[in-house]
Design a protein around this nucleic acid. Structure first.
Lengths: 241, 241
DNA sequence: ACCTGAACACCGTTCAAGT
DNA sequence: ACCTGAACACCGTTCAAGT
């Protein structure tokens, strides 16, 4: 990704033939270029790796150029752009007409998208401003239940409940041992020993018999997600009819 | 909170009477002292305000003393301690015997606690290691449904669904305009105009008729929280019986 | 052994100077 | 007008030196 750049500290070669011709001034990068570099960086190395300087290196540019190319006035605006770009991935092409089926398809899509971009949840909990794709996603959720005869408050409650459930499940699913700290073998082992000692103390009979609730696998967690979603949709259906 | 400290750069006063007597070396602060200073700081000014240097100033100590007093090896361990301390607030004294009533009481308590400590959700989405109070809270949730005849997988699915719902609702409830960016009048106004323009475009008929789903008040959001919780519990009850 | 001052390698952003 | 180099005011943490 990063192209080599002649070191400015090196003295120029004595022969002109050994010196690279002056680079044609590159067309300035677009906002999309910047966001497209930031998202895989965050996916692969976490949000903390997305620094202005690192992103600039990734784009073979200078730190302050990130600001001018993306036309952001602060780093948090880059995060706004990243979050909204991911919201575009949540849009479902042809949601089914049945409201429960539609909500199920949208929710599972969100689930998949959020697992691809773990940092999204981190940012949503913070101070992100809504953008056009996030708005389209919200419209799609509301469109799924547009046919139900609900008073406005109930419709909003339904909307918030489903969205909250999805985001909450993503929070839990992401805590699966792949995060930086838990992926250190030493830490993982210490956590397991600590929990084993707590459970062995007898103070936690229910955790002892049920387990700590941390998923054994992504499949296991996806099945929890789907089952809980069905419970929620069932409860909504019972209230609506 | 911060006691005045003589400026080390000032030359000592010429008369001994004008010089403060040497401070008796203070008893070292405890880990609890550090955490008890960090939590209200995070509550009041956000997680970003919790820097090692700021916390040291708050405790009238030197930056590196924070590490030795709290016996942490990295700042993230301070966050582990803060998260676990808040988990203690989630414990309910005498949960009712009925599983739905118990889950309702615990969930509402969590809701209240999370709104008091907005940064908790931020951290949980990240890389926090579980501590003793978090374990006690999980045990309490499992104890509430201990009487239900469930296979282990269903029990875990129930547990995760309820916990996820609570955390997800907290994420939404926190996005209520009190966060730093939205509380700037200029930004708030710009966001409202931006959304009004989107809705006015006609591309979002359902958002136009239902609203953006952002809460008008905390009461409104609490009612959404309770209604969604009842839907979820109703769906669980239907599956269990 | 426990505690900490100074230094280090970062960070986001300001601002003046380039083009 | 747009872009950017250098500087500034931070940050978490290392490490050697204190007690």
């Amino acid at each position: 990704m990063t192209r080599p750049r002649p070191d400015a500290d090196e003295p120029p070669a004595p022969l002109v033939w050994d010196r690279p011709p002056p680079a044609r001034p590159r067309a300035p990068l677009s906002r999309e270029d910047v966001v497209a570099a930031a998202i895989p960086l965050a996916d692969a190395e976490g949000l903390a790796a997305v620094t202005v300087r690192r992103l600039a290196a990734e784009l073979d540019a200078r730190p302050m150029s990130v600001y001018s190319y993306a036309r952001i006035t602060a780093k948090e605006e880059l995060f706004d752009l990243m979050v909204d770009q991911v919201c575009a991935e949540m849009l479902v092409a042809d949601p089914p007409a049945d409201w429960r089926a539609a909500l199920r398809v949208i929710a599972v899509r969100c689930w998949e998208v959020l697992l691809r971009h773990p940092w999204w949840v981190e940012l949503t909990g913070q101070d992100v401003l809504p953008g056009p794709n996030g708005t389209r996603h919200r419209e799609q959720v509301l469109a799924a239940v547009a046919g139900l005869p609900l008073d406005p408050a109930t419709r909003r409650a339904l909307f918030v409940a489903v969205q909250a459930y999805i985001v909450g499940q993503a929070v839990f699913a992401l805590d699966d041992g792949s995060r930086p700290r838990r992926s250190s073998g030493e830490v993982r082992e210490a956590v397991e020993q600590f929990e084993a000692a707590l459970i062995g103390s007898g103070e936690f009979p229910n955790l002892a018999s049920t387990g700590t609730g941390r998923p054994a696998s992504r499949e296991e967690f996806e099945s929890y997600f789907r089952r809980g979603l069905d419970w929620l949709l069932h409860g909504i259906a019972a209230a609506v009819d």
